[in-house]
Amino acid sequence: MPGFGTELNWRPYVGAAIAVAAAAATGAAAVDTNSAWYRELPKPPWQPPSWVFPTVWTPLYATIAWSAGRTWNRASEPERRNLVVALTVNLTLNAAWSWSFFAARSPRAGLASNLLLDVSNLHVIRTVSRSDRRGTAALLPYAAWCWYATALSAAIVQHDRRP
């Protein structure tokens, strides 16, 4: 464990950044907010404009990578394995949301994906909390934004009358 007088291992930060960037790029490949399908979806009045999403996601992705790298440096070997599994599942679900909502053109699938991601976020937070409080705190805005996205998806599903 790094502490006073020990050297910090940067490799976990780099590995986490690569994993997070891969998830972000995979998810972004499915997003098309200019499509007629998306523009015609009934959205709640409290949905932010499209430009807000990448603006918010960029620092959120950075905090996920930072938290993962920091936690890795503080975790025991079994905790590291749990972190890798939890984060892999989480990033997969994160990217999958874009594909289930945008690529599949299914608000209902998007909502289901959001709910799975929310559960995964709680698991990642719990996993990180076993090793690092600051790493845990850094993940809270990510979880909050995903809960907000779940509420947006639910509102779209509620108002979407298409089959």
Rank of each mutant, 00 (worst) to 15 (best):
E77H: 05
E77T: 14
E77W: 00
P78W: 06
E79D: 14
E79W: 00
R80V: 11
R81M: 03
N82C: 02
L83F: 06
L83G: 03
V84C: 10
V85I: 15
V85Y: 04
V85F: 08
A86Q: 04
A86K: 09
A86N: 10
L87C: 05
T88N: 05
V89Q: 07
V89H: 09
N90G: 11
L91A: 05
L91H: 02
L91W: 04
N94S: 06
A95P: 08
A95E: 09
A95G: 09
A95F: 00
A96T: 14
W97N: 10
S98E: 11
S100N: 13
S100K: 08
S100M: 14
F102M: 06
F102E: 05
A103V: 02
R105V: 04
R105G: 06
R105D: 10
P107K: 00
R108Q: 15
R108S: 12
A109C: 11
A109M: 14
G110A: 03
G110P: 02
S113L: 05
S113V: 06
S113D: 14
N114I: 08
N114C: 13
N114Y: 01
L115S: 00
L115W: 07
L117S: 10
L117Y: 00
D118T: 08
D118G: 10
V119P: 03
V119Y: 12
S120A: 14
S120Y: 01
N121W: 02
H123T: 15
I125W: 01
I125K: 04
S129F: 00
S129C: 06
R130G: 12
R130C: 11
R130P: 03
D132M: 06
R134T: 15
T136I: 07
T136W: 00
T136K: 04
A137Y: 02
A138I: 01
L140N: 10
P141Q: 11
A143H: 13
A144L: 12
W145C: 11
W147A: 14
Y148S: 08
T150A: 07
A151D: 09
A151S: 12
L152W: 07
S153R: 03
